[in-house]
């Protein structure tokens, strides 16, 4: 059965604390921290972008997959911070992992769920037999305007998944999507920072789509929350995934393992699939995982996965999510604006 044959992540090492951002904008750091349930976020270095993060994650995924990159027939990179508006990130990744030239490649964009949309597309290519292996990546260096509440959460990071039929470390049992036109968050062409509907967009956007997709998938499989060992959700802040998980009937033990937003922020296209990687880092063969992403605009993709025996031998072949989370250097707001190019020289 088709599934994940290799996964890899990358999280930049710079961190800025919520209190430090709050200090600059005259907000109460403690109450912001409590409200968002985010203590610090990951910030990409000055020479990093969605492409370099994608490449590092893809190389880690290849180490675990133990396949030749030339066997990859499709590379799709999901991001809302592609370095070029016209010119694919996917070709940069393809060249950097030596998968060229016999493959198809494209960039995906769907706010924070472009990574899972890419996973569905390569899964379909593998299922149909069009490609042997497909590489799907979600990678972002998310933007937040100075002083915007998004600045507390918009972070850098990414995850890569190689999907194929041979010896998967986790099989993908089913996938289900729920999509509507709900303009809760957007960025217009040529604009450096996104805009959003602000308060009250949680219910009609995040909660409606995430719970509908998760429920839809479970109903189609005749399963309930009790049939899963882990549930992973998109994490725009620490509150939303916990609230939606409880609403759906999941217990703390099922959803806490996949939450990392409190320590790295919202990595947008990387968010839910970094959570999945964190769970794969600890899961045992036979355990079942529910993954549900969310992308503003709006839509959710849900996946049902079963962890297979080969997880044990493949897991040590690349760094774990915790390795990247713990390798960190704190920066202040002045260095942060320099790294994020919010000042010009």
């Amino acid at each position: 059965m088709e599934g994940i044959v290799g996964y890899g992540v990358y999280i930049p090492r710079y961190r800025i604390k919520t209190e430090e951002i709050a200090r600059v904008w005259g907000n109460d750091g403690e109450s912001v921290k409590k409200g968002l349930m985010i203590g610090e976020k990951a910030v990409a270095g000055i020479d990093e972008d969605a492409a370099t993060i994608a490449v590092e994650a893809a190389r880690n995924a290849l180490s675990r997959a133990e396949i030749s990159a030339k066997e990859i027939g499709a590379i799709y990179v999901g991001s809302e911070s592609h370095p070029y508006t016209v010119k694919p990130t996917a070709t940069i990744v393809a060249e950097a992992v030596d998968a060229t030239p016999e493959l198809t490649a494209a960039d995906f964009e769907f706010a924070c769920k472009a990574g899972t949309a890419a996973m569905q597309a390569v899964l379909a290519l593998v299922k149909s037999g069009m490609v042997k292996y497909g590489l799907a990546i979600g990678s972002d260096t998310a933007q937040g305007a100075p002083g915007d509440p998004l600045e507390y959460t918009a972070a850098g990071g990414g995850a890569a998944y190689i999907i194929g039929k041979n010896n998967p470390l986790a099989t993908i049992e089913a996938t289900y999507s729920f999509t509507t036109d709900t303009p809760d968050f957007w960025r217009r062409e040529g604009q450096p920072y996104p805009r959003h509907g602000g308060r009250f967009t949680g219910l009609p956007a995040y909660f409606k789509h995430v719970s509908s997709a998760a429920k839809g998938l479970m109903d189609s499989l005749g399963k309930g929350p009790e049939d899963f060992d882990f549930a992973v959700f998109h994490q725009p802040n620490g509150k939303f995934p916990r609230v939606v998980a409880k609403k759906l009937g999941f217990e703390k033990e099922q959803f806490e393992a996949g939450i990392l937003v409190d320590r790295i922020g919202n990595t947008y296209s990387g968010s839910s699939i970094l959570g999945l990687a964190k769970v794969l880092d600890i899961a045992k063969p036979g355990q079942k995982i529910l993954l549900t992403s969310f992308g503003s605009g709006a839509g959710s993709d849900a996946f049902s996965l079963v962890v297979e025996d080969s997880i044990e031998e493949k897991r040590p072949l690349a760094p774990l999510v915790e390795d990247y989370i713990s390798d960190k250097v704190y920066i202040d707001y002045a260095i942060y604006v320099k790294l994020r190019k919010k000042i010009r020289v």
Partner: peptide, 9 residues
Amino acid sequence: PVERVFRKI
């Protein structure tokens, strides 16, 4: 000891 990494030049 060092290892290669992919970055913007």
